[in-house]
């Protein structure tokens, strides 16, 4: 019997060594160490032995059963990993095929640039203040120190409506009056974004509607050097830390002194190109110290308060930043343009 047992052990191990797949492995387990397997059968035959032989045989059967089980586990692990490797090998993909397209939504480039602008000014304590597109002549002009028939009105080609005294705002500056009247006598730091309208033929450089972002700061000790420093910081944040700015005198009826701020041309790095008309500078915003009359109209005593204001066209900034050569793209609603942002 012990001999038979030994033969069974050898046979089982030999068979096991030849097994290469899970199915044969299951068969082997059933045949040799399962509940009805050969080794189990042998234990049942213990009764055929004499009392003396039984302990020795029992011990041996158990030993063999354990050894075979261990061998089985080891083999099973090898077979499984081989099988997995085979499966993985046959499941290879052409990873160079295009992925499943995902529809990606995007923000309009004007929204993106406005968010950039809001974020930068927000960091400097300027909060967004919005006011209506359709305005009174009084807010858009008169309270900003531009009386009727003043020559400065030539600076804004205006859309008038059939209602007396009501126009489409030519700039977001009327928001200055609204903000001042709302917040007086608190200090003010606001950003005034919004769509503005000008009576201009649509060309690559001009649109009848455009976004403008104005800024207004009013306080007890705000100076022109603060204006320069603040606007230069903004420019460096928006266009890069090395970007130079230049301020030169200009005229707006609602600021005095008034200035234009030029930024070193983004495209040619100030060397001179077609965009900057070979000057190395591109005009990006107008600014100045709030005119005493405007402070007064806003409710602030110009003897005690000073302030600065500035205004820029955000499409123009986007055009410079992204190298867009035609402003008409912005409201064209053409995905072939919009998808590039």
């Amino acid at each position: 019997m012990l001999e038979q047992l030994e033969q069974l052990r050898l046979e089982a191990l030999e068979k096991l060594a030849a097994i290469a797949d899970g199915e044969a492995l299951d068969g082997w387990e059933k045949r040799f160490i399962g509940r009805k397997g050969a080794v189990t059968e042998m234990t049942r035959r213990v009764g055929e032995l004499s009392k003396d032989e039984r302990p020795e045989f029992g011990r041996r059967v158990n030993e063999i059963k354990q050894a075979l089980s261990a061998a089985y586990e080891a083999r099973a692990a090898t077979v499984q990993s081989a099988e997995m490797e085979r499966r993985l090998a046959s499941g290879a993909l052409d990873v160079s095929l295009p992925g499943r397209p995902k529809l990606l939504g995007r923000l309009h480039p004007s929204t993106q640039i406005l968010r950039d602008i809001f974020r930068i000014w927000g960091d400097m304590g300027f909060q967004v203040y919005r006011s209506p597109d359709v305005e009174t002549d009084e807010n858009n002009f008169q309270l900003l120190n531009i009386p009727p028939d003043h020559p400065a009105r030539d600076m804004w080609a205006t859309f008038y409506t059939t209602r007396e005294g009501i126009i489409l705002r030519t700039h977001t500056s009327p928001g200055q009056i609204r903000a001042m009247r709302q917040y007086c006598p608190e200090p003010i730091r606001v950003i005034l974004p919004g769509m503005c309208y000008r009576y201009e033929q649509v060309t690559a450089r001009h649109e009848t509607q455009f976004y403008q972002v104005e800024g207004l700061a009013v306080g007890n000790q705000i100076t022109m050097s603060d204006l320069k420093g603040t606007l230069s910081s903004f420019t460096r944040r928006l266009f890069g830390p090395e970007r130079e700015t230049r301020f030169r005198p200009s005229y707006f009826p609602f600021t005095e002194p008034s200035a234009e701020m030029d930024v070193e041309c983004i495209l040619c790095e100030g060397k001179g190109c077609a965009v900057c008309k070979q000057t190395g500078w591109v005009e990006i915003l107008g600014c100045g110290m709030v005119h005493p009359v405007v402070l007064q109209n806003g409710g602030y005593d110009p003897a005690k308060y000073t302030g600065f204001a500035f205004g820029m066209g955000s499409e123009r900034i986007a055009m410079l930043k992204y190298g867009i050569n035609d402003i008409r793209y912005f409201w064209s609603n053409d995905l072939r343009f919009l998808e590039q942002f």
């Binding site: 917040y183 603060d226 320069k228 420093g229 603040t230």
Partner: peptide, 25 residues
């Protein structure tokens, strides 16, 4: 003030950070 700034040269006016009180947020 504007005439003085213009002749003094805008480029010679320094750049400073606003020292004024922040408005209520």
């Amino acid at each position: 003030a504007e005439e003085i700034a213009r002749l003094y040269g805008y480029q010679h006016i320094p750049e400073t950070e606003m020292g004024d009180r922040l408005p209520p947020l």
